[in-house]
Nucleic acid binder design. Structure first.
Length: 478
RNA sequence: GGAUGAAUAGCUCAAUGGCAGAGCAGCGGUUUGUUAAGCCGCCGGUUGAAAGUUCGAAUCUUUCUUCAUCCGCCA
């Protein structure tokens, strides 16, 4: 059997036993022709492999270069040097794969995140990205664990859809029609009857509508899958391809929805805190070092771990949209005309307004509810006042909107009226309306942008650094 | 889509109209219980692309490309 190796994480968490082990990994650094810092991706730390002078061939030592892969056999002993608890005294070293030092782009020093983005296929081998992606994995696992423990059914909603009614954003077209000599109707429009699906199709922008179909049968479902938006968004928090979690619950109102969202976010953060301590500590230190370069007033008040603990130990602030507008109108920032955009009831709050509420006023996550109906989607439940809908957005410090959700309009007549007002084609949405025709129930749900959550937990400033291969306008490498 | 800024060696940066340079990496040597090892030496450039101004352009002008930050759209 080839793989009898011990993972480095396991070794480092144990005690030196003076017994022979096999480890495999990639060379991070090779010092003094004696000390290999070996990493196998199981944790942020490297294990020190000691090669006794004179014991190994010169030719072999020359091949131990940065990122060469090694199979090392040796004894785990208490480290003779400072800086690590234990080390492996090698008895045999095999080069599994050479790494040409002249061509290998990563050096044992700090690289810019922009440079690493250009070599995204190799950036996993850095400490920072190692930590980010181990945490990303933990969060994904915790999401499934949370919902499974609560009895939610994981529903796989389609990636390719034919509905263009949801209006969550611009869509990527899916087609097999040729670009030249496209089949046309008599009026000159494209004849989609000739297309693969016999109709116009797109990549999904949300699994919510299909999710509602599941919730009105299984009670509680969630989706967790890729989502696509063809928006020309050039920011540090938008991707053209991102992962979204969308729970949908029957027999739930807006308050239940908020409670679930808050419990959910705290649960997955706690899971990462308990299972990725070393990675979080590394990222926390990284962030602190970064911030040392910033002027005093631009630095965060809390360190990364401190921030996460604060979120875990405090309730999210819950305010209505109307209260939020009042706070903004009363704010020193408004009175001193610091806002670029005007504030009045009915506006769609700008980033500067949300940031003020979250980062200056409350200094913690804020749930804003009951938005004016005109700035929200057709499926949100109309409140008794006739002006607002049962929507809720969760705003997180440094990230902005991390969750968008609502209680859904379960009353068929109201829903049809809203669809008509907002020019949503009811004929194409018949399947959706069936949930309201046959045993309609109060229900609610939300969407959480997974990458934004990973950003929040890892403290990474750019969303392109928390997804393996980011897709953004004019960028689709790897 | 809009605004602003940037692009110089593999990486991080310097050179403000007058001979393109440093640190790191790499390579060769040396040292050997190191922690992003030390010491000596060597290698390294179509200054993002194209055009223009000028005796002379990395530097000034124009266009383009890419990247970053902020805004808009949103998760």
């Amino acid at each position: 059997m080839f793989n009898k190796r011990v993972k480095i994480k396991e070794l480092l968490n144990g005690e030196p036993k003076e017994q022979e082990v096999v480890v495999m990994g990639w060379v991070r650094t090779f010092r003094n022709n004696q000390f290999v810092a070996l990493n196998d991706g199981s944790c942020n730390s490297n294990i020190q492999v000691v090669l006794e002078l004179g014991r190994f061939e010169e030719d072999l030592l020359k091949r131990i270069t940065t990122s060469a892969s090694l199979k090392v056999t040796g004894n785990v002993i208490p480290s003779l040097g400072k800086g690590q608890k234990l080390e492996i005294k090698a008895t045999a070293v095999e080069i599994l794969g050479d790494s040409d030092a002249e061509k290998y782009p990563l050096q044992p020093k700090k690289h810019s995140l922009e440079f690493l983005r250009e070599i995204a296929h190799l950036r996993f081998r850095t400490n920072t990205f190692g930590s980010v992606f181990r945490i990303r994995h933990s969060l994904a696992f915790a999401i499934h664990k949370f919902f499974h423990e609560k009895g939610f059914l994981y529903l796989h909603t389609p990636i390719i859809t034919a509905s263009d009614a949801e209006g969550a954003g611009e869509m990527f077209r899916v087609t097999t029609l040729p670009f030249d000599q496209t089949p046309r109707n008599e009026d000159g429009t494209v004849n989609f009857k000739e297309d693969f699906f016999g109709k116009s199709t797109n990549l999904t922008v949300s699994g919510q509508l299909e999710g509602e179909l599941g919730a009105t049968a299984f009670g509680e479902i969630y989706t967790f899958g890729p989502t696509f938006r063809a928006e020309n968004s050039n920011t540090a928090r938008h991707l053209a391809e991102f992962w979204m979690i969308e729970p949908e619950m029957a027999f739930c109102d807006l308050e239940d929805n908020m409670n679930l969202a808050e419990e959910f976010i705290k649960y997955i953060i706690r899971f990462a805190m308990e299972n990725n301590r070393e990675d979080l500590e590394f990222l926390s230190q990284r962030l602190a070092d970064e911030e040392k370069q910033l002027p005093q007033d631009k630095r965060s008040e809390m360190g990364l771990i401190e921030k996460l603990e604060f979120v875990l130990n405090n309730n999210f602030e819950r305010i209505t949209y109307t209260e939020a507008i009042d706070i903004l109108l009363q704010s020193p920032a408004y009175k001193k005309k610091k806002f670029q955009y005007d504030v009045k009831w009915g506006i769609d709050m700008q980033s500067e307004h949300e940031r003020y509420l979250v980062e200056k006023h409350f200094k913690k996550p804020v749930i804003v509810t009951n938005y004016p109906k005109d700035i929200k989607a057709f499926y949100m439940r109309l409140n008794e006042d006739g002006k607002t809908v049962a929507a809720m957005d969760i705003l997180a410090p440094g990230i902005g909107e991390i969750v968008g959700g609502s209680q859904r309009e379960e009353r068929l007549d109201r829903l049809e009226q809203r669809m008509a007002e907002m020019h949503v084609p009811a004929t194409e949405m018949d399947w959706y309306l069936d949930t309201r025709r046959f045993g309609s129930v109060p229900h609610a749900g939300f969407g959480l942008g997974f990458e934004r959550m990973v950003q929040f937990v890892t403290g990474m400033g750019n969303i392109r650094d928390v997804i393996a291969f980011p897709r953004t306008p004019k960028n689709c490498e790897f």
